[in-house]
Amino acid sequence: MKPYLTSLRAIVLREALRFVHQRERFIAALVRPLVWLLVFAAGFRAALGISIIPPYETYITYETYIVPGLCGMILLFNGMQSSLSLVYDREMGSMKLLLTSPLPRWWLLFSKLAGSTVISILQVYAFLIIAAFFGVQAPPLGYVTVLPALIVAGLMLGALGLLLSSFVRQLENFAGVMNFVIFPMFFLSSALYPLWKMAESSELLYTISLLNPFTHAVELVRFALYLEWNIAALGWTLLATGVFTALALWGYDPARSGGARRGV
């Protein structure tokens, strides 16, 4: 068991070091949700009335509503960004180093996933602290209960990133994937508006949003932050994690990579 833990620690640590070295990335990761919270939400609160929906027990401000969605946004961007680093790694060769280690490949990829999730979660907490300073606070215990939800949601989005990186060969293609994955996932979810609002304008978009695993990740975080369980959201998120992980492992299977991935 020891070699497994040794490699896990080293991979997570390296991921963290890389993150520390890329200060711009950290700042960008924090500024992005803050702009949404402080600018976008301020403009939108008048336009959008939020009724009392679970897990909230009273009327809430729009800022309060979107905080879990913005936590989801951090996890989503970070999941994609660490897979961007995988594509980059693969071109730069350090992925080769990882994949030629004698440990099982699934473990190495899982370690990488764990590393990116740890970093995502640290960013979410940094964001939650700043949001609290600006008056958007959750129950104190919520900051603890949200942790397992963040882990599950982070793993799910990290696994999605891993999956994409196994099928994307070049960085240029990746930019396209970002546009076709991040934006639809984010906007077709409950991150910015409750889904019943969506249902009022389009039944189809509502259905798509309901199927979007990102919606469930956001709801999982939202409920956990307010000390409530959302079993359905947890189930959907775990299911999506399982599917994405399985497909990613398949994508990184050396026997499959024949014609498609010369570069590796």
Binding site: K2, P3, A10, R14
Partner: peptide
């Protein structure tokens, strides 16, 4: 971005 030694230590960890 890592030192020579850190690079080697990382590799050592990948080999358990």
């Amino acid at each position: 971005d890592l030192t020579v030694r850190q690079n080697l230590r990382y590799f050592a960890a990948l080999h358990g």
